[in-house]
């Protein structure tokens, strides 16, 4: 597992360096205080990570489970496309001003869960007459089948779509940080405030930080995918 993580992370190092370089160049061109801009962007990233990571983990895990169980889970997948994270964040901010952290998490986790539900449900339906039938033919029954085979299948499918889920969640995190009052002060807030002020150096540095975060999370997601599903370990 550790070597897999290392391999995946090392594979994205050039991309991360490229992002850092681009941010440094733009910040240096924009003004003299470019080291502070980069430093501020880096310092703001952990707050965003603390918002994105649990939301993704929770959303993907629960979504995959709902997807393979079918029934009520299918409804979540069905309405999923109608509720991008930024829209949920706005709705929560306007209606329930209490508990912004929890609501922010929910706004990010729900779309991820909806996508995972759809992918996992499709994977289960596709495996019904192949892998799952073969396992039943060998005498595997209800709950063992769900936990040992159907759920890993669903999780694997959900992890396969993790790249777009990561990008969507990071995007939505920017909206959450900006709509939830003073609850969060991460890279998303930094980015929007700099953009509003027309501070190109800071805005690009923050955006590069967010992109780097997405790349890193994508790499970790691929490593986790490979850990769950040996078929995804290659390459």
């Amino acid at each position: 597992m550790l070597s897999l993580v290392l391999r995946r992370v090392l594979a994205v190092v050039p991309a991360l360096l490229g992002l850092a370089l681009a941010a440094a160049v733009v910040a240096a061109l924009a003004g003299p205080g470019w080291t502070q801009a980069l430093g501020a962007a880096l310092a703001a990233l952990p707050a965003t990570l603390a918002l994105v990571l649990p939301a993704l983990a929770l959303g993907t895990g629960l979504g995959a489970l709902l997807g393979v169980m079918g029934g009520a889970g299918a409804v979540l997948g069905w309405v999923g496309p109608a509720m991008p994270g930024f829209l949920l964040a706005a709705v929560f901010a306007a209606t329930l001003a209490k508990a912004p952290v929890l609501l922010g998490l929910a706004a990010l986790a729900l779309p991820a869960a909806a996508q995972a539900t759809t992918l996992a449900g499709r994977a289960r339906a596709g495996a019904e007459d192949t892998v799952l039938l073969a396992a039943r033919g060998r005498g595997m029954d209800g709950s063992a089948l769900l936990w040992r085979l159907a759920l890993p299948l669903g999780l694997s499918a959900a992890m396969g779509g993790l790249r777009s889920a990561v990008a969507g969640t990071v995007t939505a995190a920017v909206a959450v940080e900006n709509l939830s009052g003073t609850g969060f002060s991460g890279a998303g807030r930094l980015f929007v405030e700099a953009a509003r002020a027309g501070d190109a150096g800071m805005a690009v540095a923050a955006l590069a930080g967010l992109c780097g975060l997405a790349v890193l999370l994508g790499a970790l997601g691929r490593a986790l995918h490979g850990w769950i599903d040996p078929r995804a370990r290659m390459a």
């Binding site: 990071v170 995007t171 980015f191 953009a195 955006l207 967010l210 997405a214 994508g218």
Partner: peptide, 9 residues
């Protein structure tokens, strides 16, 4: 794989 939508704001 990047949060490209942020390029618009």
């Amino acid at each position: 794989g990047l949060p490209l939508a942020l390029a618009l704001p």
